[in-house]
């Protein structure tokens, strides 16, 4: 039997919002270590990797490893039925063909349960090599969302250039060109408001704006976001999820032909 109880149910609601624009369906792989999900969008240009550690749940039981194929559109409809204050429990029998979501109101005066059919997904799993990135940039997640939204008006591609001075985001198209430069924060008084750059070597890469904008649907999960870049390898955009895990997005660069 599998059962995972999350006191802060709103986190799962936010995770749903972070996944459903990019993915239609995905396999939730459950083990005694926790819940993992890895899936590429239909165009195989981006990949989402979610990790929720068992110890982050109020109660977590996984008798046998379980992979639950879910239609994320349906799952999103069910999670919309949960209030932000609800405790959310996910449970399934071993080799079941359905999963049940239970929403408990904080004072237990309302308990809802929703049963959803599972899908057989032949998920291809990609090996993501451990990489020592040339540049990592940590910045406020709201800032990154704003930059992606503003610059995607100018072009379908965004160039992210990181040097020791700072990081520059640029986009150009029919109406013109936009450049946004962020300097490394001088004093880091409020950690999550800071722009922190670690640079081994300067990097400049081009990415499709539409995927970057999809990634920023995870903004509500964390006050800060971390971008990792190396020449000619996929960008990593990582949002921590409180003390339970993270959601990581990988995006293949556009390279001059």
């Amino acid at each position: 039997m599998f059962e995972a109880r999350l006191l802060q149910g709103s986190l799962l609601k936010k995770v749903m919002e972070a996944l459903k624009e990019l993915l239609n369906e995905a396999a939730w792989d459950c083990s005694d270590a926790g819940i993992q999900l890895q899936a590429m969008d239909n165009s195989h240009v981006s990949l989402v990797s979610l990790n929720l550690r068992a110890e982050g749940f109020d109660k977590y039981r996984c008798d046998r490893n379980l992979s639950m194929g879910m239609n994320l559109g349906s799952m999103s409809k069910i999670l919309k039925c949960a209030s932000n204050e609800d405790i959310i429990t996910i449970k399934a029998q071993d080799n079941a063909d359905t999963v049940t979501f239970v929403f408990e109101s904080p004072d237990q005066d309302k308990v809802s349960d929703y049963e959803m059919k599972l899908m057989n997904l032949d998920q291809e799993h990609l090996g993501i090599p451990e990489t020592d990135y040339a540049c990592t940039i940590r910045l406020p997640s709201s800032e990154f969302a704003r930059i992606c939204r503003d610059l995607s008006q100018f072009g379908e591609s965004m160039v992210i250039s990181c040097t020791k001075e700072g990081v520059r985001f640029s986009a150009t198209g029919d109406i013109g060109t936009g450049n946004i430069k962020l300097a490394q924060s001088a004093k880091v008084d409020k950690e999550e408001e800071a722009v922190v750059i670690e640079m081994q070597e300067p990097v400049s890469l081009t990415f499709a704006c539409r995927y970057l904008n999809s990634f920023t649907k995870a903004t509500s999960l964390s006050k800060s976001v971390q971008l990792s870049m190396s020449p000619e390898v996929p960008l990593v955009v990582e949002y921590k999820i409180e003390d339970i895990g993270h959601v990581r997005y990988y995006l293949a660069p556009k390279i001059e032909d």
Binding site: H44, V45, L47, L126, G127, P234, A252, K254, E256, D257
Partner: peptide, 14 residues
């Protein structure tokens, strides 16, 4: 113009 790459050029099927 820059050409979009596929992730599979970077990550191998495990």
């Amino acid at each position: 113009t820059p050409v979009q790459n596929d992730l599979k050029e970077f990550f191998t099927l495990a």
